[in-house]
Design a protein around this nucleic acid. Structure first.
Lengths: 341, 341
DNA sequence: TTGTACGCGTTATCAG
DNA sequence: CTGATAACGCGTACAA
């Protein structure tokens, strides 16, 4: 509000060109003589011109905005994913409007409305509350990351492969009993494949297994208490057997490892432990934890490629809305550290 | 581009009102009769109207955008801060444009230019590369968080108080030797006060102390190796004394604790350990670590209050640019856990 | 209570 | 290579 911005009109007046020519200076500089480019260039910084992209957007319809909705940034997975998405700026020059939504569907819908009102060209969704059907109804390119995505395109870690790798390692290491510890995930969620792969692999190789889906809780302490109960149960039930424990994530794995260490002062040879995610805690733990590493950078990159592609399509005169959603899976890598032999 | 947006003009035509009235429906609904409000309301969803905030911004100059520049989101401190800032949306309804910048000053300046071109009303800076003088020159409300801020307003943890609390606790617990482990921070950085308070407090109470600023490295492994060297040195130099170790952050504290555990299988009574930040690792560690908890939520909240205030000022007819920058310090809280008696 | 006319800063179209 | 003019969608004096 202070002093009016310097606009194309001002530049035009100063240089005795028209606004159109000034515009061209920015968008098709080749169509001006070098001499005139120089004139305008000089006028620009004697007048102290600053672009106004909003006006540009209004005029040409290309906002270069992408909306992101994450459940939270507390979990390393989400914050790292956001980092990777933001870093794509250097490639694509899309700007990101970020919302964090943890209070249910209404809130999330409201955020999307707001995002749409800023003419976002695409949307990346990491939260779970809105159905993919609802998301598809917004008629805008959407990419889901690691969530239910029947009606929209998605990128997901290949949970089945990850779990298979972990389970196979425990089998190769000749564990007597394989145990998988997880929350009771719904079958529609991609992460359910971790349970499925564990079970199917155990059956295939005919090794005894035990699936414990009793984990729950909203705080570290609550979850730790559950893990402690599970630990006690396992200690009692499989006293002298070699136990291969595959946990749903590195946080659980770290809890379990701590409990072992507090009891034995070390990791006894009767235990092998594998986590999931390759989050920092896996390497910061008392013993670096073997884990299934999600390739967050690759996931983010792939998401952007897919989204950019669909957004480009939208800008054409006859945008074909992509009759079938595209689903990509990124294979995770097994990272062997010190909790397996 | 697909089908044109529904605009006020369309609503106006449909309802036989003027565009102005439609505009008023949104901004001063009281000035319409209830009957007409109803008419318009109905027209809105039969036509499927969606707002266009960009047009609104262009018309009234209030973008409701705030720019954020963080160095990265890998560190818990930054991601948590971003979370807290984003969550202020429910109070203030400002939208956030987020950039992550780790490649030096030119990159960062470019990002700020871009942000300005989107008519951001304010800027929150967590990165260190640009001087506060430079930032002040952009003539826009800026808040610095935990960084040099001579020429701009800032929010900082009261590092002196935090360090003082930690040091005092170690003294109360009758440690024979107090040791502070840190990187060699510059004196202009707020975190330097941690070193200063440690030293001054030790001197005041006349306890022997040892300041080790040799920490360095860009990866977890590199840093761990340095911490290991320091650990070895301390073990040799102060064999039978009770050692009070105050580390610059919880990650270092966790490393140190792990080294102790790997050697002794427990935390011997000759050690007390205090970290800084209250990041997740402090509670996820093999033994929950006593730490100085930064009140990230309070910092974020205060930052937003200050920024909103300055942005409001800007919108007035005679915006007074705040002759002196305001600096606020947030007192951290000592969180006593299991690595102190 | 409602409408007219114009401005916000840029781009697109058509003309020359 | 350059320019006039009309969009883009909404807000706001000023007038009625």
């Amino acid at each position: 509000m202070a002093k009016k911005q310097v606009t194309f009109a001002d530049i035009a007046e100063y240089t005795h060109f028209s606004k159109t020519t000034i515009s061209r200076y920015f968008n098709h500089p080749d169509s001006l003589t070098l001499e005139n480019q120089e004139k305008i260039s000089q006028a620009l910084d004697t007048l102290g011109y600053k672009k106004n992209k909003l006006a540009k957007v209004l005029a040409n319809g290309k906002s270069e905005f992408i909306g992101i909705i994450v459940p939270n940034l507390y979990l390393h997975y989400y914050s790292e994913m956001l980092t990777q998405l933001l870093s794509s700026y250097s490639n694509y020059h899309y700007k990101f409007l970020v919302f964090s939504s943890e209070h249910g569907a209404e809130e999330e819908q409201q955020y999307i409305e707001e995002l749409l009102s800023y003419q976002i060209e695409g949307l990346i969704v990491l939260s779970h509350t809105l159905s993919s059907q609802k998301l598809a109804s917004y008629q805008i390119p959407v990419i889901a990351i690691e969530r239910e995505a029947e009606y929209i395109s998605s990128i997901t870690t290949d949970n089945y492969m990850g779990s298979l790798q972990a389970t196979s390692l425990l089998i190769r290491d000749k564990c007597d009993i394989l145990i998988h510890i997880n929350v009771n995930v719904e079958k529609t969620v991609p992460a359910y494949d971790r349970i499925r792969a564990f079970e199917e692999t155990c059956k295939e190789y005919q090794v005894p297994y035990d699936i414990d889906l009793s984990v729950s809780g909203n705080s570290y302490q609550e979850i730790l208490n559950v893990i402690r109960r599970i630990f006690t149960r396992i200690e009692e039930k499989y006293p002298n057997q070699k136990k291969g424990i595959f946990l749903a994530n590195d946080t659980y794995a770290n809890m379990f490892l701590n409990l072992i260490f507090q009891k034995y002062g070390k990791l006894p040879p009767t235990y092998e432990i594998i986590g999931f995610d390759n989050s920092p805690i896996a390497s910061e733990s008392i013993l670096p934890i073997t884990t299934v590493g999600q390739q967050i950078d690759v996931i983010a990159q792939t998401a952007m490629e897919l989204l950019v592609q669909q957004m480009e399509e939208q800008k054409k005169r006859a945008p074909k809305p992509l009759e079938k959603p595209i689903h990509k899976q990124i294979t995770p890598v097994l990272i062997r550290r010190n909790t397996t032999s």
